[in-house]
């Protein structure tokens, strides 16, 4: 709180004071990052910072951002520069989360439902992919979920598949990386290797041997199964 106010004033001084002369690039970049509600790429920052007196290169911007990062760290500022979605943005440091959250009470909901997340995971890892292909993997329709993803710009149409009907192909949307705090798709968690997909042959199938007894048992045995062995880890 106090930290917020203090750092606000200081930032103001830094950027406003040398306004008459050409402000230094560090101040310009800081001002842009401070005012933006979206991540800014180094190229975008460079073009915004360029003026008649001279072009600013993305490389120069990146160097200045490193300086800012170091400065914030050394001075123990409440915020930091983060790289997300191929851009940079300012964010408050984690230790202040509790205080800032109070300000946003009731809390802002940005979490996705499980069905939405699953669909998005499929899109992220399989893009470009058609709706039908997604549904084949999930085993259920995804119309509603897909609409949510498109509305939230977490997914988008990236083309059409050259098959009959030319169905849309979907990929991750503008806000995907940001939502998960990723700087690029390469940073997605790695897919764990599955056991090699060789079908196990049924020699003398265990399945058939047990078939008979289960038939009678199933009716009363099944629903009474205790849940206790299954701490509900399937869902959260």
């Amino acid at each position: 709180m106090n930290d917020d106010e203090r750092s606000g004033e200081e930032t103001l001084k830094e950027t406003a004071a040398p306004a008459a002369a050409a402000p230094d690039l560090r101040g310009v970049v800081e001002a842009l990052l401070f005012a933006s509600s979206e991540p800014l790429s180094s190229a975008r920052l460079a073009s915004l910072a360029s003026c008649e007196e001279g072009e600013v290169s993305p490389g120069a911007v990146t160097a200045v951002i490193r300086e800012l990062e170091a400065e914030y760290r050394e001075l123990g500022r409440a915020f930091e520069v983060t790289r997300v979605a191929n851009g940079y943005r300012l964010r408050t440091r984690r230790e202040f989360a509790g205080y800032v959250q109070r300000m946003f009470n009731p809390r802002r909901y940005t979490r996705l439902s499980l069905a939405t997340l699953e669909t998005l995971a499929i899109i992220a890892y399989k893009q470009p992919i058609t709706k039908l292909e997604i549904e084949t993997i999930r085993g259920v329709g995804v119309d509603g979920v897909l609409k949510t993803l498109l509305d939230r710009e977490l997914a988008k149409v990236v083309g059409q598949k050259e098959v009959i009907g030319r169905p849309y192909l979907y990929g991750t949307g503008e806000r995907f990386l940001e939502h998960f705090g990723l700087s690029s798709l390469q940073d997605l968690p790695l897919v764990e290797e599955q056991e090699p997909a060789a079908p196990r042959r049924l020699s003398s199938s265990s399945d058939l041997r047990e078939a008979a007894p289960v038939e009678e048992a199933a009716a009363d045995e099944f629903p009474a199964r205790d849940l206790d062995r299954q701490p509900g880890d399937e869902h959260d």
Binding site: F34, L90, T92, F96, A121, G181
Partner: peptide, 23 residues
């Protein structure tokens, strides 16, 4: 596999909640 991945994504989105950017 995708269920597992979506759980990871969920953890990531929750972790993001600790960081605030300009609204």
């Amino acid at each position: 596999q995708f269920k597992g991945l979506s759980e990871r994504l969920h953890e990531m989105e929750v972790a993001q909640e600790d960081y605030y950017t300009r609204a």
